[in-house]
Design a binder for these strands. Structure first.
Lengths: 246, 246
DNA sequence: CGTGCCTTTGAAGGTTGTCAACTGTAGTGG
DNA sequence: CCACTACAGTTGACAACCTTCAAAGGCACG
C-alpha cells in the first residue's frame, strides 16, 4: 500500500468525534454520520520536528488538515533561498491551494514540532463536499476568513512599523503558543527562529533583533531565545493601538 | 419587490451561456442545465461610475459576481479614512468573504466605471453549490488562487522596492486595462487615482509621483494622468526581474 | 574543544515617509 | 466667459526607519 510509509497510521488511531482540532476547522459543521465516513477513510500522519510534510513542486495527492502541532509554509526561489510565508495551526487545512488550483505544491510544508495530520484523498474530500452541505460552507468560511486575514496582513505590513507588527504578531501567537502564570504574566514560546520571525513580519533578522531590544528597553516584552515574557498584556496591546487607528 | 431599486434588472437581460466573464470565473465548470437555473434566478445590477455597490458594515444579503467593469474594494477606519484594498474584475466574486464568514461587509465596494453585476441570493448559491460539483470546485479554486495571490502580494510588498512593485502592478493591469498599438507600444489606462495606486502598492502618493518620474526618466513608462505609455514591454519586465529572483 | 550557523551589534547609507508649499485642474458661481 | 474655490497631484527638504554590510558573540553539534 502506498500509504505504508514512515509517519502514516491507520485511521482508527484518531477519532474525529473527539478531535479537539475540529472546533473552528472545516469539519466544524459536519454531521455525525459524515464524521464516521471521515473517520473510516482518512489517514493519519505524524511528522517529526523539522521534517518536511511535502516539498514545493511535488505533485499534490490530497488535502491535509493539521490536528496537532505547528506547520511552517515556506516558499523557495530558484537560488534555494526560502521565506517563511505563514504558520498553519490545528484545525487549519494544508495544501488546499494546490489541491484546488495548480495540482503542484507551491510551497514547502515543514513541521516545527511533532505534528499530527489528517490526510484526505481527492475522492474522500469530494465525497465529503457533496454529502454534507456543512462541509462546503465550512471550507468556504475558512478560505474566506483567511482571505480577510491576508488583507489585514497586507495593511499591517505596509502601514505599520516593524515594532507595531511585532507586537501584533506576539498577540496573535498568544492563543496557540502562550500561557499565563499566576501573577498574570504572559509567557509565550515562539515556534520559529529569528529569521523566520523576520519573514513573518516582512523584515530582516537584524531589524528583529533591534526591535526586540527596543521592546525590552521599554519594558513591553523580554526575549530569551524563543521564550518571550510579557509582564503586562495591556502594555503590549497599547503598542498596536497607539500606531494609527483601525 | 425588494429588488426594484435603481440599477436592478431582470435576469433575462443577460444570458449566462454567452457571458464572456464566465471564463475563469466560479461558473467556469458549470453544466448547461445548472446554467439555466442560474440564468433564471440570478439578478443583474448595473452601477454607475463612482457609485457604491455596498457599504462597509452593511448586512450581506447575497453574493455578487462582476460581469463587466472594475470594482474597488475599500476599507474604512473609524476616522473615516479609506484604503483601497484591491480591484475586482469580471469573473471575480464580490462579497464572498462576509457571505461565508461574518455576514457583514468588511469593506466598501465602489464601481470605478459602469459595472454590471450578477447577484445571487444565499438560497440560489446554495442550490448551485449542491447541485453541481463543478461549482464547488470552481469556487474553491478561485478562493485558493486568490489566497496564493495574497501571499505573492505580501512578498512583493515586503521584499521589493516601490519601483519594482509599480512595474509589477503595471504588468498586472495590462490584461484588463491595456492595449497594444501597431508599433508594439503598450498603452494602459489606470482605473484608479494616484492615491489609490499608492494604496495598491502599499506606499504614499508622494512616493508614487517620484517613482513615476523615475520610470519616465529611465524611459520605462510615461504617465499622463491616468494614461500610461510603455514603449517596450521587455524593459518593463526587466524592472521586475532585475530586483531579486523569484 | 573546534566548527558552523544563527543571532546580535555596530556603522553607514538608501529608501521611504512626513511635512509643507506649490501647481494644475475640474467644478462652481458670478 | 471668467474668476474663484477646492482638491488631487507634484515637488522639495528633511527626518526616520529600515536595509545592508561587516564583524563579533553565542549556542548547538560533531
Amino acid at each position: 500500500m502506498q500509504l505504508r510509509r514512515a509517519g502514516w497510521r491507520a485511521a482508527s488511531s484518531l477519532r474525529c468525534h473527539t478531535c479537539a482540532a475540529r472546533c473552528g476547522s472545516i469539519w466544524e459543521q459536519v454531521g455525525p454520520e459524515q464524521l464516521d465516513v471521515l473517520d473510516q477513510r482518512k489517514r493519519v500522519r505524524v511528522v517529526n520536528p523539522g521534517d518536511v510534510v511535502y516539498q514545493q513542486g511535488e505533485r499534490c495527492t490530497g488535502l491535509y488538515v493539521v490536528q496537532r502541532g505547528t506547520v511552517a509554509l515556506r516558499k523557495f526561489d530558484e537560488a534555494g533561498n526560502s521565506v517563511l510565508l505563514r504558520l498553519v495551526h490545528p484545525g487549519q487545512a494544508l495544501g488546499y491551494r494546490c489541491f484546488f488550483d495548480t495540482g503542484t505544491y507551491r510551497a514547502q510544508a515543514q513541521a516545527l514540532d511533532t505534528v499530527r495530520l489528517c490526510f484526505l484523498t481527492p475522492a474522500l474530500l469530494r465525497t465529503m463536499l457533496h454529502s454534507d452541505p456543512g462541509v462546503v460552507m465550512g471550507m468556504m468560511k475558512r478560505l474566506a476568513r483567511e482571505l480577510g486575514e491576508a488583507d489585514d496582513r497586507f495593511l499591517m505590513a505596509t502601514r505599520r512599523s516593524v515594532r507595531t507588527r511585532m507586537a501584533h504578531a506576539l498577540l496573535q501567537l498568544r492563543d496557540r503558543h502562550g500561557a499565563v502564570d499566576d501573577g498574570g504574566v504572559l509567557t509565550l514560546t515562539l515556534p520559529v527562529s529569528r529569521q523566520d520571525l523576520a519573514d513573518l513580519l516582512g523584515t530582516r533578522p537584524e531589524t528583529v533583533a533591534r526591535t526586540t531590544k527596543a521592546l525590552e528597553r521599554d519594558g513591553v516584552a523580554y526575549f530569551q531565545g524563543r521564550v518571550v515574557t510579557i509582564p503586562d498584556l495591556d502594555t503590549l496591546m497599547d503598542e498596536v493601538d497607539s500606531d494609527g487607528p483601525a
